[in-house]
């Protein structure tokens, strides 16, 4: 049973780490602000989500598990809100500058 749990953890955390890599590379390599934003928020939230998924089997109890899931939900909300706000700010900045 412990082996199965560890397998899930390794698989999910590795996938999460890959998405962090993708997000960072996107942020550094994509040509303009809006595409960079796209790379960042999508990959970022998937990365956090997969890390949370991977840590769930290692969580101490139900309460820790619930906290982990709420962290991911808060992360999703933050990513969605911030990408909207920054995209608007960037668009207005470009049209005026």
């Amino acid at each position: 049973m412990s082996l199965v749990r560890d397998m899930i953890t390794i698989a999910a955390v590795s996938a999460g780490a890959f998405f962090f890599l993708a997000g960072t590379v996107g942020l550094l390599r994509f040509p303009d602000t809006l595409t960079r934003l796209h790379a960042l928020t999508k990959a970022d939230n998937l990365g956090l989500g997969l890390v949370v998924l991977g840590l769930l089997p290692q969580a101490g109890g139900l309460r820790d598990g619930l906290k982990l899931v709420s962290i991911w939900l808060l992360g999703l909300l933050a990513g969605a809100t911030v990408s909207q706000l920054i995209a608007r700010a960037a668009r207005h900045g470009e049209s005026t500058r």
């Binding site: 999460g16 962090f20 942020l27 934003l37 960042l40 970022d44 890390v51 992360g75 933050a78 960037a90």
Partner: peptide, 23 residues
């Protein structure tokens, strides 16, 4: 190059920091 890009990088560091803290 722009402030928006700097803000995005902070956001990335924020989410990454949360993941690093959990791990």
């Amino acid at each position: 190059p722009g402030d928006a890009d700097r803000m995005m990088a902070t956001q990335l560091i924020g989410t990454g920091g949360i993941a690093a803290l959990l791990l």
